[in-house]
């Protein structure tokens, strides 16, 4: 699996990827260890994180350093959580069934400070899901791979997070 990932890195990116790997190895491992508290499992999660990074390196390398670190942290923690879930035999997380449709109406009428307050009222998972989607510009397929769920599951989670945010915004404005 790891080798197959190698073919996903463009030849021109490999040296850059090697430097990226060296620069972020400790962060990746530490993030995984913070979830798993097991050296071997943390190595496994770290390896999976780097495989993910390799497969999406074209996108990741375009981010600034701070965004890269957040991206890497999110990936590592997510892979570790996924591994923990598998280890505990909890199986795949239940697919979300909330079918709330996206409403792409403009939010320009709302104050940014109000939206910020609403974002803080989301769950951390929802907030970071929106951060991955909107700020880090990850598509649902990439998010699905990161979370270890199906693309449809990722899309539904995003829909749910967006719907929740919209609900909070509209409630607060009434």
């Amino acid at each position: 699996m790891f080798t197959a990932c190698n073919t996903l890195i463009d030849a021109g990116d490999r040296e850059e990827f090697e430097a990226f790997y060296k620069k972020h190895l400790r962060l990746v491992y530490a993030a995984a260890f913070s979830v798993l508290h097991d050296e071997q499992l943390s190595e496994d999660a770290a390896m999976e994180a780097f495989m993910y990074i390799a497969a999406h390196f074209g996108h990741i390398k375009a981010l600034d350093e701070a965004a890269c670190r957040r991206y890497v942290y999110l990936i590592s923690r997510s892979r570790a959580t996924d591994l923990l879930r598998k280890e505990s035999k909890a199986g795949e997380p239940a697919e979300l069934t909330d079918e709330a449709a996206l409403d792409d109406g403009s939010l320009s009428g709302y104050e940014t400070v109000h939206i910020k307050d609403c974002i803080m009222r989301l769950s951390k998972e929802e907030r970071q899901l929106l951060y991955m989607s909107i700020t880090l510009d990850m598509d649902s397929k990439a998010i699905a791979e990161l979370l270890g769920i199906s693309p449809e599951g990722a899309r539904k989670r995003l829909q749910r997070a967006r719907a929740h945010l919209r609900k909070l915004i509209e409630e607060g404005s009434e």
């Binding site: 993030a31 996206l102 939206i115 910020k116 974002i119 970071q128 929106l130 951060y131």
Partner: peptide, 23 residues
Amino acid sequence: MNNNIINEALRSTAEPELDREIS
């Protein structure tokens, strides 16, 4: 949703949160 507004709000909320976790 207006992603620019959301993005701005996310940057001022989710990013510090992540940075704290990383640090």
